[in-house]
Amino acid sequence: MSSFLLKRLLQGVVIMAAMSVIVFAGVYAIGNPLDVLIPPEATQDVRERTIARFGLDKSLVEQYFLFISNLLKGDLGLSYIYNEPVLSLIGNRLPATLELVLTAVLGATLIGVPLGIYAGYKPHGFAARAIMAISILGFSVPTFWVGLILILTFAVSLGWLPSGGRGETVEFLGIEWSVLTLNGWSHLVLPAINLALFKLAIMVRLARAGTREVMLSDTVKFARAAGLSEMTILSRHVLKLISIPIVTVFGLELASTLAFAVVTETIFSWPGVGKLIIDSIKNLDRPVMVAYLILTAGLFVTINLCVDIAYALLDPRLRRGRAE
């Protein structure tokens, strides 16, 4: 187990190194930030000083190694636009995205998996068919459209919920959170539903497919023959047997939603990292883009590592060293 973890960690380091090269080279290739940084009427002197200040007079390779050595010191550079350290810029906005995405993905899983198990347990019932029909909707309707409809319905027509922003926040562990206030929740609900819909559909389908398969297995027959109730069979046998694909998708969805909640954040003007990256791309704010992409890669590597550990915890056959 520990050698497996070590191997995974090393793989993660290699992936991160490769990502940093690709990201840096890629961002370097798009546009010249000078036009953004320096007003056209600036003097040649100002021009040169600015170029030197941001290290733009050095070669790509030099810039890269400068960036990496700063990165290892925990310094991701200054934003061209906000003139603020990139790390604190992202750090200020990450909690907003984090609470939105966790609410959405956890909610989708906690609601979707039981619904899917039910639909797989009674696949021919009316309720199961209804659940599956709704899950197709979840798949096929585009997120931005659902977001607009949610705002039109609940914010504009009914006036029940606000249409944007984070609402009241409370400081906890030095970070502002919306999930801790009622008003914050009223702001969170609509964007969370908007983000969760697609994931809910995936969870329902995964859980249903797994349950259908497991219900026909001899394990379930044997459990029934031993007199176990259907509820016990579903909660103890089936849930654990179908959990591996669910954990996989949970991890992938969590990571990709954290990185790319852009559409929902834009529609609901949720001040998360998604909005930050879009703004930084528009403004060619190189340090923010690079830092954001590298953090995202790190996020994927970390979450995948957690998923691998979860596999080993869930399925004893994957634990090495203890078997036979």
């Binding site: 001899d218 027959k221 044997f222 459990a223 023959a225 654990k240 047997l241 056959r317």
Partner: peptide
């Protein structure tokens, strides 16, 4: 009841 293949009847993850 006892079944044919114990590999299939016992739950591998419990």
């Amino acid at each position: 009841m006892v079944f044919q293949d114990p590999m299939m009847t016992l739950n591998p993850v419990l």
